[in-house]
Amino acid sequence: MQRVNMIMAESPGLITICLLGYLLSAECTVFLDHENANKILNRPKRYNSGKLEEFVQGNLERECMEEKCSFEEAREVFENTERTTEFWKQYVDGDQCESNPCLNGGSCKDDINSYECWCPFGFEGKNCELDVTCNIKNGRCEQFCKNSADNKVVCSCTEGYRLAENQKSCEPAVPFPCGRVSVSQTSKLTRAETVFPDVDYVNSTEAETILDNITQSTQSFNDFTRVVGGEDAKPGQFPWQVVLNGKVDAFCGGSIVNEKWIVTAAHCVETGVKITVVAGEHNIEETEHTEQKRNVIRIIPHHNYNAAINKYNHDIALLELDEPLVLNSYVTPICIADKEYTNIFLKFGSGYVSGWGRVFHKGRSALVLQYLRVPLVDRATCLRSTKFTIYNNMFCAGFHEGGRDSCQGDSGGPHVTEVEGTSFLTGIISWGEECAMKGKYGIYTKVSRYVNWIKEKTKLT
């Protein structure tokens, strides 16, 4: 034993070699072989497995989906700052455009905790909710729209109204504003409101030439003092309507412009014939205590009207009353817009006519005020429907199939267009061939041609 100890002390290297040989010859039971080890760690190889990531292109799944990435790591994937920024906006807080917040056709661009709407022409605001041009839906104005110097929408209202708090709607500024039905039992019968379409306001006024200088022999019209197929109006439903009495009662109609003036057809009036105007009328054979009678003290036909040349060209006249009318729910003026808007309103496509005229061709006159909704007829169809001249200051309205029309005794009465609950004068009943005849239409004086003249002559002093 002493000898062994001496050998170990003198030859430590020998001992180490012996131990190493023993270990190498022993069977290893701690580690699995290569094949079995792979069965336990069965993990798919990654895209760049075996390579240094710093030297390969980034992978979106590896960089940002398996674990949260930084902007720089995302930049490695896209290799483009702009594309990385677009991805980053949604990656950080989701897609803010998912709810489609942009209105009126706006395009949404996502941002971090926010979004941006790219608005089409005519709109602005956070969600493109603000109209900035009158060309689109009248700028959301209830009545009139004008573009300011910086191309912003400025709404306005006709006389007797003021802008509401929203700067879009119009509200009454006087007790009985024009064009409004205020009798409670008839307010439910107000005709369907007309909503502004998209309009090209630059070209809204037709490029028409008034044929002022045409000389033409007097034409022989049949029954051209021209509501057939209409309905009984309720008291106060058309408070701007008046009836004219002269040699015979209810020979023509008219509309209240203001307390002192009536507008009617020029062919209705004769110099030297006494005319009485009755406002607030409903049943011409009954006294309903809503009527107001006034005498006409002055007749002003349009300066281009000449019955000797043509009885229905420039067929418009103004009547001055001896005493002002007292405005109330049964006696209310009709609204008159400017030339541009009167023309736009007419193009809405349908209007209402009213009167006490004959209820059928050569038949009896109506006792109760009649009204009828009539569609506008395109000019080409209008011209083809008659052998008589249709001037540019006239328009056609009615039904091709016949059966409904204005008729004798309705002449001078109103053709009105309702705009968001307020009625505007767009025409004056003038003439036609018979009444409600198939293929024939009622012919009306186009008020847009005469609004400046009306307003100039009827100013209240």
Results as ranks from 00 to 15, higher is better:
Val4Asp: 05
Met6Ile: 05
Met8Thr: 14
Met8Ile: 07
Ala9Ile: 05
Ser11Leu: 11
Gly13Lys: 13
Gly13Ser: 10
Gly13Glu: 02
Leu14Asp: 01
Leu14Thr: 03
Ile15Asn: 00
Thr16Gln: 06
Ile17Asp: 00
Cys18Gln: 02
Cys18Asn: 01
Cys18His: 02
Leu19Asp: 00
Leu19His: 00
Leu20Cys: 04
Leu20Gly: 01
Gly21Pro: 03
Gly21Asn: 09
Tyr22Glu: 01
Leu23Ala: 04
Ser25Gly: 04
Ser25Ala: 05
Ala26Trp: 00
Glu27Leu: 02
Cys28Gln: 02
Cys28Ile: 00
Thr29Asp: 12
Val30Ile: 07
Val30Pro: 12
Val30Arg: 12
Phe31Thr: 15
Leu32Val: 11
His34Asn: 10
His34Ile: 05
Glu35Met: 08
Asn36Cys: 05
Leu41Cys: 10
Asn42Tyr: 06
Tyr47Glu: 10
Asn48Trp: 10
Asn48Met: 12
Ser49Glu: 15
Ser49Gly: 13
Glu53Val: 05
Glu54Pro: 06
Glu54Asp: 12
Glu54Leu: 04
Phe55Ala: 13
Val56Ser: 09
Val56Trp: 02
Val56Ile: 04
Gln57Met: 04
Gly58Tyr: 03
Gly58Cys: 13
Gly58Thr: 14
Glu61Ser: 15
Glu61Ala: 11
Glu67Gly: 10
Lys68Asp: 15
Lys68Arg: 12
Ser70Met: 08
Ser70Cys: 06
Ser70Tyr: 09
Phe71Thr: 15
Glu72Cys: 12
Arg75Ile: 14
Asn80Trp: 04
Asn80Tyr: 05
Arg83Gly: 15
Thr85Ile: 06
Glu86Pro: 15
Trp88Ser: 15
Trp88Cys: 13
Gln90Cys: 13
Gln90Lys: 15
Tyr91Cys: 15
Tyr91Ala: 15
Val92Pro: 09
Asp95Glu: 15
Gln96Ala: 12
Gln96Tyr: 10
Cys97Ala: 02
Cys97Trp: 02
Glu98Ser: 12
Glu98Ala: 07
Ser99Ile: 10
Pro101Ser: 14
Cys102Glu: 01
Cys102Pro: 01
Leu103Ser: 07
Asn104His: 15
Asn104Pro: 03
Gly105Pro: 03
Gly106Ile: 02
Cys108Tyr: 02
Lys109Pro: 02
Asp111Gly: 08
Ser114Gly: 14
Ser114Cys: 15
Tyr115Thr: 15
Glu116Pro: 05
Cys117Val: 01
Phe121Ala: 08
Phe121Pro: 14
Phe121Gly: 08
Gly122Asn: 09
Phe123Trp: 09
Phe123Asp: 07
Gly125Arg: 06
Lys126His: 04
Cys128Val: 02
Leu130Trp: 04
Asp131Arg: 06
Asp131Cys: 10
Thr133Gly: 14
Cys134Leu: 02
Asn135Met: 14
Lys137Gln: 14
Asn138Met: 14
Arg140Gln: 14
Arg140Ser: 07
Cys141Lys: 00
Glu142Met: 05
Asn147Glu: 11
Ala149Thr: 12
Ala149Ser: 07
Asp150Thr: 09
Lys152Gln: 09
Val154Phe: 11
Cys155Asp: 00
Cys157Gly: 00
Glu159Asn: 05
Gly160His: 03
Tyr161Ile: 00
Leu163Pro: 04
Glu165His: 05
Lys168Val: 07
Lys168Ile: 14
Lys168Glu: 09
Pro172His: 05
Ala173Pro: 00
Ala173Glu: 09
Ala173Phe: 08
Val174His: 07
Pro175Phe: 04
Pro177Arg: 01
Cys178Val: 00
Val181Ile: 08
Val183Ser: 11
Ser187Tyr: 07
Ser187Leu: 06
Leu189Gln: 05
Thr190Tyr: 08
Thr190Ile: 10
Thr190Asp: 09
Ala192Trp: 10
Ala192Thr: 07
Ala192Met: 08
Glu193Gly: 11
Thr194His: 13
Val195Gly: 12
Val195Trp: 12
Pro197Gln: 10
Pro197Ala: 08
Val199Tyr: 10
Asp200Leu: 06
Asp200Phe: 12
Ala207Ile: 09
Ala207Cys: 09
Glu208Lys: 11
Glu208Asp: 07
Glu208Val: 05
Thr209Asp: 10
Leu211Asp: 07
Thr215Cys: 08
Ser217Ala: 08
Gln219Phe: 07
Asn222Ile: 10
Asp223Thr: 12
Thr225Pro: 10
Arg226Met: 10
Val228Met: 03
Gly229Ile: 11
Gly229Glu: 10
Glu231Val: 09
Ala233Lys: 08
Pro235Asp: 04
Phe238Thr: 05
Val243Trp: 06
Val243Thr: 08
Val243Ile: 11
Val243Glu: 02
Leu244Asn: 01
Asn245Thr: 05
Gly246Cys: 03
Gly246His: 06
Lys247Ser: 13
Val248Leu: 09
Asp249Tyr: 04
Ala250Ile: 07
Phe251Val: 04
Cys252Ser: 01
Cys252Val: 00
Gly253Phe: 07
Gly254Pro: 00
Ser255Val: 11
Ser255His: 01
Ile256Pro: 00
Val257Glu: 00
Trp261His: 01
Trp261Asp: 00
Trp261Glu: 00
Val263Arg: 01
Val263Glu: 00
Val269Gln: 02
Val269Trp: 04
Gly272Trp: 07
Ile275Met: 05
Thr276His: 04
Thr276Pro: 00
Val277Tyr: 00
Glu281Ile: 10
His282Tyr: 08
His282Asn: 13
His282Phe: 04
Ile284Glu: 07
Thr287Tyr: 09
Thr287Val: 13
Glu288Ile: 09
His289Glu: 05
Thr290Met: 08
Lys293Cys: 04
Lys293Phe: 11
Arg294Val: 02
Arg294Pro: 01
Asn295Ile: 05
Val296Ile: 07
Val296Leu: 02
Ile297Gln: 06
Ile297Trp: 03
Arg298Phe: 02
Ile299Cys: 06
Ile299Gln: 12
Ile300Asp: 01
His302Pro: 02
His303Gly: 10
His303Ile: 06
Asn304Tyr: 10
Asn304Ala: 09
Tyr305Leu: 02
Ile309Gln: 11
Asn310Ile: 02
Lys311Asp: 05
Tyr312Gly: 06
Ile316Asp: 00
Ala317Trp: 00
Ala317Ser: 03
Leu318Val: 08
Leu318His: 00
Leu318Lys: 01
Leu321Phe: 00
Leu321Lys: 00
Asp322Glu: 11
Asp322Ala: 10
Val326Asn: 06
Leu327Ile: 10
Asn328Asp: 09
Ser329Cys: 05
Val331Tyr: 00
Thr332Gln: 04
Thr332Trp: 02
Pro333Arg: 02
Ile334Asn: 00
Ile336Trp: 00
Ala337Glu: 01
Asn343Trp: 02
Ile344Arg: 14
Phe345Leu: 08
Leu346Thr: 13
Ser350Thr: 09
Ser350Glu: 08
Tyr352Gln: 02
Val353His: 09
Ser354Gln: 13
Gly355Gln: 15
Gly357Ser: 14
Gly357Cys: 07
Gly357Lys: 13
Phe360Trp: 14
Phe360Val: 11
Lys362Gln: 04
Val368Arg: 15
Leu369Ile: 13
Tyr371Lys: 10
Leu372Glu: 12
Arg373Phe: 03
Val374Met: 14
Pro375Trp: 11
Pro375Ile: 12
Leu376Trp: 10
Asp378Val: 04
Ala380Cys: 12
Ser385Thr: 14
Thr386Leu: 12
Phe388His: 14
Thr389Trp: 14
Ile390Ala: 07
Asn393Tyr: 10
Met394Arg: 04
Phe395Glu: 02
Ala397Phe: 02
Gly398Ser: 08
Phe399Gln: 15
Gly402Ser: 11
Gly403Phe: 08
Arg404His: 11
Asp405Ile: 12
Ser406Glu: 14
Cys407Arg: 05
Gly409Glu: 13
Ser411Cys: 14
Gly413Ile: 15
Pro414Cys: 15
Pro414Asp: 04
His415Asp: 01
Val416Ile: 13
Val419Arg: 13
Ser423Trp: 12
Ser423Phe: 13
Thr426Gly: 01
Thr426His: 01
Gly427Gln: 00
Gly427Asn: 01
Ile428Val: 08
Ile429Leu: 12
Ser430Trp: 03
Gly432Lys: 13
Glu434Ser: 13
Ala436Arg: 12
Met437Thr: 14
Met437His: 08
Gly439Lys: 13
Gly439Trp: 03
Lys440Met: 07
Lys440Glu: 14
Gly442His: 14
Ile443Phe: 09
Tyr444Ile: 13
Thr445Lys: 00
Arg449Val: 15
Arg449Phe: 15
Arg449His: 15
Tyr450Gln: 00
Val451Tyr: 10
Asn452Tyr: 11
Asn452Pro: 14
Ile454Met: 11
Ile454Leu: 13
Thr458Ser: 10
Thr458Asn: 01
Thr458Leu: 02
Lys459Trp: 05
Leu460Asp: 15
Leu460Gly: 09
Thr461Arg: 04
Thr461Trp: 07
